[in-house]
């Protein structure tokens, strides 16, 4: 029995080696190799904030940048990936983006111009933006925070059926009142760190170049004053602490300082 088990061990090892699913690649439609999706920066939600490889997402945002690489099963030599139609997909500086919604093929061509393989991708318009809170689990429309405490927000592009879209998009974040809540860019373009400056409410808005916007109403409450703090922080705390009505006027100076510090 033990001898039988020992005999089975190499086979089991082989199964483990060959049976490992390749999670970051999709087989080409001619079955000659695999395509891997590359996030061009960390703002692509496909890669969950990491620049790297992923399975090709079902849906890509129109205008969202992405890259693809191809590995042929028979080592087809140097292969270039390019769109079948530049009417559908643009190619700029080694990255691609859907120009218009639809389905379009990406071709893997070798040196001789022979098409080794291809894969179809689907591009859709961004219908709305979901703003996600700290947990990144659910979209939020309001946020409560306290002065002196940072809060993170991230945005996720969605289609009209609320499906998440891949591709790196350029977002612009703004606070309606930086004297209450300041917006600091995080490492990924789809996320920001908010800083509560003074008690009050302000709207933090994220927008795409297309004009699509999403706003979050942020309410900042006065936090417990820090016992040890810098001189500007102490000033901000004491002025806000003197009363919410006059505090907002006083903190304009503080906001200017915060703004200058960005």
């Amino acid at each position: 029995m033990i001898r039988k088990l020992l005999l089975l061990l190499p086979a089991a090892g082989l199964l483990v080696l060959t049976g490992c699913p390749v999670t970051d690649a999709s087989t080409g439609e001619l079955s000659n190799g695999r395509f891997a999706y590359l996030c061009v920066d960390s703002s692509d939600p496909t890669c969950d904030g990491i620049v790297g490889k992923a399975v090709i997402p079902d849906l890509l945002a129109v205008g969202g940048a992405f890259d693809l690489e191809y590995a042929g099963d028979s080592g087809a030599g140097l292969v270039q990936v390019q769109p079948a139609s530049d009417v559908m997909i643009s190619s700029t500086a080694g990255t691609f983006a859907f120009r218009i919604p639809g389905i379009a093929a990406m071709l893997a061509k070798n040196n001789g111009g022979v098409v080794a393989d291809f894969v179809h991708l689907r591009g859709v318009d961004v219908d709305h933006l979901d703003v996600l809170g700290e947990s990144l689990a659910e979209s939020i429309k309001t946020l409560e925070m306290t002065t002196g405490v940072a809060a993170a927000l991230a945005v996720s592009p969605r289609d009209r059926l609320d499906a998440r879209l891949g591709g790196a998009l350029a977002y612009t974040w703004a606070s309606s009142d930086p004297s209450i809540v300041a917006v600091n860019m995080a490492s990924a373009r789809n996320s920001v760190i908010l800083a509560g400056i003074a008690a009050g409410t302000a709207t933090v808005e994220v927008s795409l170049r297309s004009g699509l916007k999403m706003a979050v109403l942020v309410t900042v409450k006065q936090g417990v004053p820090m016992t040890t703090s810098s001189s500007s922080g102490a000033g901000g705390s004491s002025s806000s602490g003197s009363g919410s009505g006059s505090g907002s006027g006083t903190t304009t100076t503080g906001a200017g300082g915060a703004g200058g510090g960005k």
Binding site: L30, N32, S74, A76, A84, S85, D86, V87, A105, L107, K109, G113, V114, V115, A116, F118
Partner: peptide, 16 residues
């Protein structure tokens, strides 16, 4: 474009 297999080709729509 030709493909890897004998007498295999890939046709693709480029523009209308």
């Amino acid at each position: 474009e030709t493909s890897l297999d004998d007498r295999s080709f890939v046709l693709f729509g480029v523009g209308p």
